[in-house]
Write a protein that binds this DNA or RNA. Structure first.
Length: 270
DNA sequence: CTCCAGGTGATGG
DNA sequence: CCATCACATGGA
């Protein structure tokens, strides 16, 4: 079926934005999107129209929220235009980006893995985890596609199995995260009710989760868009373009969205 | 060979 | 509180 999306929506930019590591262009213009145990093929056809592989009810309940389509990104870009010359350039370069509303557990594991790895290496480790601990959810390009494992599925992970996912020193971090979910110290649904600070503190109890990873889980897993993770790219932008001063308090509840534009722009040498 | 990658924990001041 | 340093692994 088809859907009309009148706001910013650039699938290639979203795929390259470093917030999802399983989105792939499987044939020119067609993107395979994976989240939890769901798979979607989406393709821009003409004007605002996109062709999608799901039913209308799946679109409404799964993918419309996943792509954060209730939020007007072009209005946000317009709102902050003119405040800072560099930010303007970033919003222009990143026009089409959206913050995906991904699964919190998937984000926690993924961003623990992300530390001191480049994006291709993160994708490779994530795929190995899906293949080993997830389950088959379909086929594409003559290969099996696996879900991202649930916390329940990951309880069968051990040091030996995880070490074959190229996790290096992060293996005990993943085991700690999984163990906290299985004994209830970490409950992702209950955590939805916490405010930003409480959620941050709870996430930081997990080994291998510090300021940056906790903020990524808040932003991408809980849509806490006031959170603006500072990684090496953002720190570089702060040093080179904002006089060494973190600019994100200027952007209030949209700080995380502005951060995403800057991250994208820095990685594409704007 | 060296250097680096969406950082964090442990240690020492 | 801030500055260092080690930490596995794969790719350039």
């Amino acid at each position: 079926m088809t859907v009309d999306i009148h706001d910013d929506m650039d699938l290639e930019k979203i795929a390259e934005s470093g917030q999802c590591f399983r989105m792939k262009e499987t044939s020119p213009g067609t993107w395979r999107v994976l989240s939890r145990d769901q798979m979607l093929f989406i393709r821009k056809v003409e004007g605002p129209r996109f062709q999608v592989s799901c039913s209308e009810s799946e679109w409404d309940t799964i993918w419309y929220p996943y792509f954060d389509l209730d939020r007007n990104y072009s209005a946000i870009r317009e709102k902050y235009k003119g405040r800072n010359e560099f930010t303007d350039r970033c919003m222009d370069a990143g026009r089409g980006l959206r913050i995906l509303r991904a699964d919190p557990f998937e984000m926690l594991i993924t961003f623990i893995i992300s530390q001191r790895k480049n994006i291709p290496a993160i994708s490779a480790s994530v795929e190995k985890i899906c293949k080993r601990y997830g389950h088959m959810i379909g086929r594409d390009e003559d290969q099996d596609i696996y879900s991202f494992p649930t916390a329940e599925e990951m309880t069968r992970a051990d040091e030996k199995g995880l070490s074959e996912c190229s996790l290096g020193y992060r293996t005990p971090y993943i085991l700690d995260a999984v163990s906290r979910v299985s004994d209830g110290r970490l409950n992702f649904e209950k955590m939805r009710k916490l405010d930003d600070r409480q959620l941050f503190d709870t996430l930081c109890t997990v080994k291998g989760v510090g300021v940056k990873v906790a903020n990524c889980v808040e932003l991408f897993g809980y849509a806490r868009t006031s959170r603006a993770p500072v990684d090496v790219w953002i720190q570089r932008a702060i040093d080179q373009h904002y006089g060494g001063v973190n600019p994100f308090s200027e952007y209030g509840d949209e700080a995380g969205i502005i951060q995403q534009y800057i991250f994208y722009a820095m990685r594409h040498s704007v």
